[in-house]
Simulated scan of single mutants.
Amino acid sequence: MPRRPVLITGGCGFIGTHLAGRIAASGTPVVVADLAPWTGGPGVRAVRLDVADAGACRDLLRSARPSVVYHLAAAATVDTAHADPAAALRSTIGGTMAVLEAALAVGGVRFVLASTDKVYGELTTAAYTEDSPLAARGVYDVGKLSADAVTRLYGADLGLPVAVLRLCNVFGPGDPHTASRVVPRSLSRIFDPAGPLPPVLYTGSLHHSRDYVFVDDAVRALVALGTDERAAGGVFNMAASAHRTTRALVAEIVARSSAACRAGDPELAAAIAATGYTVAPGPPVPALTRQHCDAALLRSRLGFRPTVPLGAGLDRTIAAVMAARGLVAAPSNGATRGYRRAART
């Protein structure tokens, strides 16, 4: 008998594309459901779906009969959610309810939710644990908190096999959100086709601190929650590869981008190193100041640890951007190199 497929809602997004590719490479059939077109690799069947359409969700799950649903569909960023709250909440909350109901009706489905560390709100202790109070604020954060809570309700009270992963900031090749997320936004300016531009930092976020994890490790954790019986019913904080202030992260992105160009184009490398960063008023949308997760539960119960250090992940992301621009990156040994802090402009 062929294996039952895996369904990924929001599967055409940044994390979803990486997740679908990894699962398809293992030989498991993959169905991605999204309003966006599929632009990833082979072995994936793409279905156009509005996750807030309960009837369409029910029909899809009845026809696909997935063994696992990875529910990634939601408002993509804080900025897009803030710009259109009604659409964001419809997608994030209404979509989660519709897919949960469909999974419950079909039966035999494990539901894995990609949640966020933003459900905890402002950090007031050393780190969030899974038992920390949930105090989200803002459209994006409250939408994700609601989806998180509803998923746990369907697991605890209605008997649906569920697991929740509260992701930190995920970065890596292929992230299209160059207007809002710090890594792709910075790289889009550093490798602007017209010449290097300084990444933009906002006055209010210079000292914001966040956990960061490379997309391959986030995908590994999602797969573990969908396949490991020890994850059933669990809520897990994502394990980060590093914790950085926004300013320190951008300085490292500039330095590593320059280093990647040094062998092939010393002039470009010098121009990138000279960009530093520029500071603008903002941010345009209120943001949390400090976020940091304790991921001891993910480690103790599932034996999970990140395998890609921050530096190696940045090098791989930079190489992908350079390849898309027709540039050749210097090979990286995967080690976290030392770097000189870029000048501020």
Rank of each mutant, 00 (worst) to 15 (best):
V235A: 14
V235P: 06
F236K: 09
F236V: 08
N237F: 15
M238N: 03
A239W: 04
S241N: 09
S241M: 06
A242T: 00
R244L: 06
R244D: 10
R247I: 09
R247E: 13
L249K: 03
V250P: 04
A251T: 12
A251F: 10
I253V: 12
V254Y: 12
V254G: 07
V254K: 07
S258E: 08
A260Y: 14
A260K: 12
C261P: 01
R262M: 09
A263L: 07
D265N: 08
D265S: 06
P266W: 02
L268H: 07
A271G: 12
A271Y: 03
A273C: 02
A273D: 09
A274G: 08
G276K: 02
G276L: 02
Y277F: 15
V279Q: 08
V279N: 08
V279G: 07
P281R: 04
P281N: 04
P283Y: 14
P283W: 11
P284A: 00
V285E: 13
V285F: 13
L288D: 06
T289H: 15
T289V: 11
T289G: 03
C293I: 00
D294H: 03
D294T: 03
A296E: 13
L297G: 03
L297H: 12
L298D: 08
R299L: 05
R301H: 06
R301D: 00
L302V: 03
L302I: 05
F304G: 04
R305V: 09
V308R: 06
